[in-house]
Nucleic acid binder design. Structure first.
Lengths: 219, 219
DNA sequence: ACAGTTCTCGAACGAACGTTCGAGATGCCA
DNA sequence: TGGCATCTCGAACGTTCGTTCGAGAACTGT
């Protein structure tokens, strides 16, 4: 199926156009399973024409991953700046992640599913961004654990389990059945903080602190 | 690198041998990224010789997935038979999953990562087994929720989040750093049932049948 | 030793792959 | 209008892919 949107004229936004549709093709067929001819068809750019913008298929995957990751991470940094409460910060981490996920499912799947398809030296570069993301999440968690007497829980496992819950979403999320980003955030944060069992007291609400919905135009 | 183990003589166990090493190749290069020549090299069986045992690359992937899934599911059914306590049943689900995971990382990765590489009609068949697995997990969870007054939590999201925590393990697990199946099970079950925040009472132990009356004063 | 089944593999098939190249179109400033 | 840089693409390249085929080796029961 060919592109429904018209192909942008100027070079800059045509590049973005190609990145966008390539992410969709990669997410549907996998990086190895998708051919440059598939991408040519999906973008409306000729096979050889693609190579005017990207020097290789690897570089194309690299740019998708780097752009996506950088955007998510920068946005999270910005949103965290005004928030100090540990639980609110954790909630922001999850919300930021899931909002991007649900609004850019193809890019997010490429990020989650095709990391190993990248060869050196690109692999190393994306891994560095990912490490920054993990480190930030770990700091948020440590702030949370410092708030109260921490349970004897391996923080590495805790943080990676949280990422597991979030990143697995692309395998099952169905917009016709499942709730939006806000409620999904609420559920996952709730499980992570309090578990699925009732606390024998009343039902906890996690809407702490003054977290503005942070409805903002991006930079 | 050629096979280190000798290739079995009889047909039946040679088939198993090929399945085993193919799973490793698929897990390292991905299904699309792995070639039949890679598998030939890894198993020590000639390229054309492979087709005496499997009619296609697709069928090979199918057999790996079906065998692995069926084994895990059957084993779980057997282990659950003697256990009625809801929390113990949940713990058994996680333990069974993670034990297989840590002892057969290649097969588990193929199961988690290559489900979409399978075409029809194989895809449908594996999906049916997966649905049985999910249904069983859902029943275990419902039993848990029925035990005490359930919190207003979407059970679908809860179960799929649990699978997220478990299935994401293959992305980060490092045997030199991370704990074994038992402790990992303990941690993940702990997060799922009680969350990472302390209950303001003493440190909870999850081994019990009845719900400990955790008086909690959350933040 | 023979016949028949089971198993093995080198060689080759057409198709699809990522990438290249040079000729031609298009846009922009003189 | 002319000259130059930017952009486009059909055609082809060498390689690798999954799969097939037929000849022969190895095993089995007699």
């Amino acid at each position: 199926m060919a592109t429904s949107l018209p192909i942008p004229r100027d070079s800059q936004s045509k590049l973005v156009h190609i990145l966008r549709y390539s992410a969709q093709v990669f997410s549907e067929h996998g990086f190895e399973g998708a051919s440059m001819r598939d991408i040519s068809r999906a973008t409306g750019v000729s096979l050889s024409g693609l190579y005017y913008y990207f020097e290789s298929k690897q570089k194309l995957l690299y740019l998708i991953q780097k752009n996506t990751f950088t955007y998510i991470l920068d946005r999270l940094y910005a949103r965290l700046e005004r928030v100090r409460d540990p639980q609110a910060r954790l909630r922001l981490l999850v919300q930021n992640h899931l909002e991007y996920f649900l609004s850019h499912p193809h890019e997010m799947k490429v990020l989650s599913h095709e990391e190993e398809a990248l060869d050196e030296p690109f692999r190393r570069e994306v891994a560095a961004i990912k490490r920054r993301y993990y480190t930030l999440a770990r700091e948020i968690f440590d702030g949370l654990a410092a708030e109260a007497s921490p349970p004897a829980l391996n923080p590495r496992i805790a943080v990676l389990s949280l990422f597991g819950m979030m990143n697995w979403v692309y395998k099952w999320y169905n917009p016709e059945v499942d709730p939006g980003a806000e409620e999904l955030t609420h559920s996952i944060v709730g499980i992570f903080l309090h578990g699925v069992l009732p606390s024998a007291t009343e039902h906890p609400e996690f809407q702490l602190a003054a977290v503005p919905a942070a409805e903002s135009e991006e930079t």
